[in-house]
Amino acid sequence: MEDTAIIDLYWKRDEQAIVETDLKYGKYCHTVAYNVLNDIEDSRECVNDTWLRAWNSMPPKRPSVLRAFLAKITRNLAFDRYRARGAAKRGSGTMEAVLDELAECADLSGNWDAEEAYLATELKEAINRFAEQLPERECDLFVRRYFFAEEIPAIARRYQMTENNVTVSLSRIRKKLRKYLKEGEYIE
């Protein structure tokens, strides 16, 4: 079924919308959740939460790209679930590697909590601008790694690059991000 037809079903409050979404994007959303959670059961629950969140958001929302809309919901829900886990249950999957990499761009000394809500919105916009200004290939790598939390070998296969090449490119992107965040005074 076409995305517009599925969205129409949501707007008509037809529960068939969820069945159709699951048929078309169930696997995809499961992969997105699994990248973050590294657990099949948790990922399945996360996908179910995604359908519920989509049901609640449409209407009033009418996403232009349903696939990306669902991916974003899944990814954010999966990360909430990841954070809610105890440190012991987090394991040592891709997510830990991604966070380690991002720690290079984060500023541990910054007083983040005081203005958290405001800064979070600001930061989201800043990162969005940063991603937009990146060259096409770098933007793709950035999104695959830090939005979808994909493993480096998987990214290398996708773009027919060597793993080393991907690692080096990501390192350069992180340097750029750090510089960008410093210039925007998000970090010291």
Binding site: P63, S64, V65, A68, F69, A71, K72, R75, N76, F79, V98, L99, L102, A120, L123, K124, E125, A126, I127, N128, A131, E132, C139, V143, Y146, F147
Partner: peptide, 12 residues
């Protein structure tokens, strides 16, 4: 990482 979740859907 959470802020990365705000990346525009069009970009994704």
């Amino acid at each position: 990482f959470e802020a990365m979740g705000g990346i525009d859907e069009k970009l994704i």
